[in-house]
Every structure is written in C-alpha cells, then in structure tokens.
Write a protein that binds this DNA or RNA. Sequence first.
DNA 1: GTGGTCTAGACCACT
DNA 2: GTGGTCTAGACCACC
Lengths: 222, 222, 222, 222
Amino acid sequence: MDTDQPAKIGAQHLPLRDQVLAALRKGIISGDYPPGERLTEDRLAEDFGVSRNPVREALRVAEAEGFVVILPRRGAVVASPSSATIHDIFAVRERLEPLAARLAAERATPGDVTSLRAVLEQARLATEAQDLRRVGELNSALHLQILGISGNPWLASIAKALYLHVQWVFQMTAKVRAPHSWDEHIKLVDAIGSGDGELAETVALEHVGAASAAAHETAGRA
Amino acid sequence: MDTDQPAKIGAQHLPLRDQVLAALRKGIISGDYPPGERLTEDRLAEDFGVSRNPVREALRVAEAEGFVVILPRRGAVVASPSSATIHDIFAVRERLEPLAARLAAERATPGDVTSLRAVLEQARLATEAQDLRRVGELNSALHLQILGISGNPWLASIAKALYLHVQWVFQMTAKVRAPHSWDEHIKLVDAIGSGDGELAETVALEHVGAASAAAHETAGRA
Amino acid sequence: MDTDQPAKIGAQHLPLRDQVLAALRKGIISGDYPPGERLTEDRLAEDFGVSRNPVREALRVAEAEGFVVILPRRGAVVASPSSATIHDIFAVRERLEPLAARLAAERATPGDVTSLRAVLEQARLATEAQDLRRVGELNSALHLQILGISGNPWLASIAKALYLHVQWVFQMTAKVRAPHSWDEHIKLVDAIGSGDGELAETVALEHVGAASAAAHETAGRA
Amino acid sequence: MDTDQPAKIGAQHLPLRDQVLAALRKGIISGDYPPGERLTEDRLAEDFGVSRNPVREALRVAEAEGFVVILPRRGAVVASPSSATIHDIFAVRERLEPLAARLAAERATPGDVTSLRAVLEQARLATEAQDLRRVGELNSALHLQILGISGNPWLASIAKALYLHVQWVFQMTAKVRAPHSWDEHIKLVDAIGSGDGELAETVALEHVGAASAAAHETAGRA
DNA sequence: GTGGTCTAGACCACT
DNA sequence: GTGGTCTAGACCACC
C-alpha cells in the first residue's frame, strides 16, 4: 500500500504516544490483551520499549475510546464488552450508519464510487482465495470509506469508534459473518452510486440489522 | 441528588489530570480560551498550578473530545467550530436524541419521570426569575438526565459530547434560544412519561429540528 | 522483511534527523540529487516536510560520510565522485574486505552460514525472475551481513560507508555487474562456511579485484 | 606547510560547529570528558560559550567518528573504548597503514621525504630534551604526514580517525610507548624514501604489529 | 512492595 | 530562543 515516494518525513513521523495508542488498540482488538487484563504502565512501557509517559497518554485516549477502563489510583484494565454492550453499540449504529449512507449517496463523486467498487472487487477476489483475514480488512475499509465520503467528520469519528469495537467483539467470539455480507455491501454501494439518499439509508439500515442479529447470536459472555 | 454528606473521600479525590480536563473544558466552553488560541503546556500548567504532565494527559482527552486540535511537534490549539461543524453535529444529534427519547420512554421508572418533572419546575421558576444562566444549566441537566435514563452508556457518552459542543457554540454566538424551548421540553417529558417510545422519538426529533434551525440562524463564522 | 511482531516501538522510533539522513543518502545514491547539485537547507526541509534544524544535522553527518561537501558560508553540494575517487575507494576495499572475510570465516556460527546461504538462494530466484533491482539489494545485503559476522564494528562501519559509495558510483554509471558476480559470492560463502580464514581472505581479494576492474571499466567522468 | 602569514580571514574562520567539534574531540582525548560521562547539550554549550545548536551538530559528527554514543531521546555519552575496541581498531590499522606506507613510497617526492626526515630530527631533539608531550605530537605528525603523501584521501581520513582513537586509548592508560618507537620510524621513512613500496609495506606492518602488542599490554578495562 | 501519580530535567524540533 | 516530547526519579496510595 506504500507509495514508492513516501509521504514527507515530517508528516509520517508520529509521536511515540500515537504509535503506542495504535499498538495498544491493536493488541486489545487482537486479543493479545484480553478483556479484564490489568494493564500496568510499567508492563506496557516494557512491551513497547518506551517510558511510561507516552504510555500514560495513550491510556487516557484509549479510555476515552472505550477500550480500557481506568480506576483512579488503581490502574487500567482492558474493558470487557458484554452482550449488553454489543446491544448498545448496535442500537447507535442502526441510527448512524444509515445516516452515513444517505450523506454519502448525496455527496459521492464518480471517483468515490469507483473507489468503493474497487474495494468490492478486491473483496470478491479475497473471498475466492479464502483469505478471510483480508476479507475482514476490506470490510472495514469499505465502511470507513463510506464514512469518509459522508463528509461529516463527527459522524465518521463516532462511527469509526463504534466500528472498531464491533470488530473487537467479533474477534473475541472468533466468528466472522463474512460469508453472506458482501451481497448486502454490493447493494449498499449501488444505492450510494445512484445518488438516492433515501434508498441508501434504507439499504444501510437493513445491513446493520442483519449484522446486529448475527452479532447477538454469537455474543454472550465475559 | 447528591447527599449532604459527601461521598467517600477516595471517590471524590480525582486525579489532577481529571480536574485539569474539567477546568480546560470549562475554560474553552466559557470562551476564556477562545477558538484558535494556542494552548502551550507551560501556560496551562501555570494557569492551573500544576506541572505539565497532567496538562498533557488532559490535552489528549480534550483532543479526543474535539475541543482542541493537536498538531505533532507544533502544539495544541483551541478548536474552531465553524457553521459547517454545527451542521455536522446537529445532523448526528437528529439521529441520536430521538433514539435516547425512545429508549428513555421505554425504560423510565416513575421515579425517573418525577425527577424530570422536578427539573422542569425548577426551570419554570428560574425563567420567572429571569436567571438565564440557571435556565441554561437546567436545560443541560434535563437532556443529560434523559440520556442517563436511556440506559445506553455509549449513546449517553456520545450525545453528551455533542451536547457540550452545542453549548459551546451557543456560548460563542452569545445567543441562547432559552425563551421558547421549555414548551417543547414539557411535551418531551410528557411523552417519556407516557411510555410511548414512538411518540417520544417523534417529539424529540421535532425538538432537535427546532434547536438546529435556531443554531444555524445564529451561527456563521470561524 | 518485517516480522509480524514488530520491534519495540521505542527502538524503531528514530529522530527526524536520522530519517532525514537516510532519505538524503538514498536520494543522493539514487541520483535524485545528482553530483554537483546545490543542497540548500530550505529546499531539503521542504522536500522532507521538516524544519531546517534536522536537515542541518543530517548534512553534517552526510559530509562526514563523504556524500556532500560543505563549504563554510556557502552551503552544501552533492559530492562528485571521480574515477580517481573510485580508484581510491577500491584501494581501501581491497584491504578491508579480505579482512572481513577472514574474520567472518573464523567467527561464523552455523546459523550465520545458513543465513548467508539464504541470501544466495534468494538472489538466485531474483536473478531467474530478472528482478535486477532485487538482485542489487541482495548483493548489498550479503556483503553487509558478512561485515556484521566479522564482529568488528569499526571494520563494518568503515566498509559499509565504502560500499555505499561504490553503489552510488555504479548507480551513476548505470551499470551493474550483477550478471557474473554470484558465482564469486557462492565461493565466498563456501569459504566462510569452511571456517578457513586464509581461504576466505584469498577468495574475497579476488572478488574485490574483479569488482574493481569492472568499476574502472565503467567509470570515467564527472 | 602552513605559511607564516595566516591565510585570508574568510578561509580561517571556521564555523562554530567545527571549532566546537575540535574542542570536543580534544576534551575527550585528553580525558577531560572521561569515558561514560554524560554530555548534556546545555553543559557543552556552556563550556564552550556557544548556543546549543552548534553543539548538537558537533555531537552528530563526533558520533559518526566514534567518540560519543548517542541514544535517541537519552542523550550523548562519551564512548568507552574497551580492550576489544582496541583490538578491533588495530586489526584495521594493520591493513591500512601498510597500504599507506606503500602508496607513500610509490608517490613520495624528494621534498616529501625531506619533510618526513625533519620530523624525525625534531623528535630526536625532543626525546633528548625529555619533552615527552612534544614527542607524542611529532609521532602523530609523522603518521599523518605519511597518510597525506599516500594521496588517497579516503585512506587518510579513515586512518586518521583510527589514529586519533589509538591516541585516546594511550592517553587513558597513561602509558606511551614512545621510548623505542623511533627506530622503527626511521626505518619506515627510509623505506618510503627508497621508493620501494613492497619494503615500505613490510616495515609498516611490523611497526603496527609492535604498536598493537604494546597497546594490548597496557589496555584492559572499560 | 507494587504501582499510580506527579515533578524535574533534558532531548528534539519549529520559528 | 521557545515549546513539544520523552525519560528519570520521587512521592504516595493501595495490596
């Protein structure tokens, strides 16, 4: 995915705290840091090879994002999404993703639609190759791209956070509903491409509903 | 709702960073730190009488909440909500507050409703006394309480952040649409009290629509 | 080449100056900054998206490494290796690479040898695939690996600098002697694997001699 | 070779960073900044009466030369040559000084030889006067002059760096092998004067071997 | 004693 | 020269 001529050095040189945050999110979502696990600052600092200060700053943001719970003077613990959490998250997603789809349909340029269709095509190939991991990545990429097209950064930021949590839960339950979701995705992109906001919103609502149902089937612990 | 006897000392002893964060939010919303203002760590540390580390941690969270913008190696700046931002925020609120009202209607206990009506009554008295500041506070209190009753912490947390930003913008434009909003509030509480989720959602949608219109009239600058 | 579990964040988070230095070296060797080109600090700062300070520090080191020439109060210019320079460099390489080969032969563990042979195999595949760029990279990788095995950091550091310059000259003359060099490399690795320092030194000397001859044929300008 | 009348002011006015670098090298070699000592930028800036910027640039070059070790985000420390380091350095010198002697023999003009003999004579006088410090300086001057005569700037630059480090180690161990080395020096100059490269190389090799042995006797600590 | 919290100080980069 | 960033170390609450 890297361009040959990398972006300017200054722009890609992120502070340690940001890299720590990304690594921490990844570690949590991947299950390396399982729910309920205590996250002592010293341990994380050692894991990442940095001092405790950037770890602390990353933990504050991770808390704001809902990945960890911090108890004052007690330390941080990986959050434990329950089935209730999943229910809550989907309740919000059911409202926001249709909005995103509508806005995207109203604002999408031909280039945007081409880009979305490219993701669909890649997903088709990955599905044929049975590369489930890649399918999952493309699933995320598609939704994130739609959020970007919506042109509402607040919506995008909130929905992205929700989306990451859903991925996390899926990861925990070791189930992916990849098999049957791409038909819905194609319909969604078609609707966005048509420019019909009302239609896009309807399709998105159905899609979230299906995802929600699948999630609730597989959830139910911790 | 607070007991006269304050809660346990340990529970009310918040870390400095949390107090700094609260003070920072308040300072930004109140306009003491106007949009575009540079927030050097040293200055904030001095303002709050702490060292730079708790200031840094508070800034990270304030960034995640959208109150400040942090540019790597350049420092923090108070965010500058534009009229586009207001539009974006209301677009999301229009989806989430009706959801909150519906959930609240479906879950509200009689005690919850009594509590909501108490706020309405206090607001009526404050309006008669022309205590506009108090009216504003009660406005916030009402909406936050509804969010709490909804029982969806994700929804509550997101909507609260949006709500704070709306307050901020109102503060900036120095206009409050307090005069005519309480009629709507009464209708909203009635709907919640009735337990009719569908009705509550409809009333909430109208309310947000009115607020949105008022906000867009008064907004329109960096 | 990246491992799945990346190295600790702290270890791979280099200062901007180091990244600038690496980019500058790469730009010079690749010919993007041709010999004789003036390198104003402002321009480099813009090219890399950083401020002038890290650029200045990178330039000092690049000067110490012989890639640029800095004239006091006049600025930096990309160095212009002449055929005399090539001659000088090879005169030194003829003494140091045999030494490196001898030391490597005396110190190589079985694992070291396996690693060297892996590079040879990759090079064979890349040669078959006619991926000349990859062949060049593996060529460098092999020699650098031998230097590392030698266990003499001074030798490694000096020889590496010489090696980079030779690559630069090859790049300038747009000639690569890749075709016939891998036979020699195989002999060299065999000698190192045998543990016979004397033999390794002899083979290395022949190898450098061949490279030197090839370089002198293709050089002769700028 | 310097004229009595100093060169033009512009040419002799070196940038501050170069003067700082020279002073830093001198301070390290002389033991004023002992191995392992932390070199904070502020302290050096104060010591030399300059701002931190030229200090930083000098430190980068000093690192490239092996006098200091810089740990990212940790600062600079004076390098600590161990006996292993000494061994490594001499292993390289054994290859490069004979080469320098051979090249010098092949290229030396009568004037060059006269100049070398003048150094020998001064050294004889200084030895008689028991001015050991002067003897040491002349020792260095002789070897540096031979490197210059070799006509290979790469060789000269590399060998000079090695030579400075050897001096440093001798300084640290407070031992100088001055007593018996001048006989060897005379033989070396004779060989160079004869124009017989093979002979010069042989003599130089013996000389480095003797120096190496002496160094290893006196070394043996961090 | 472990570990969260905060301060002091220094490196690093921008202006 | 100012200011962002990170590290080292001290304080102090909890187990």
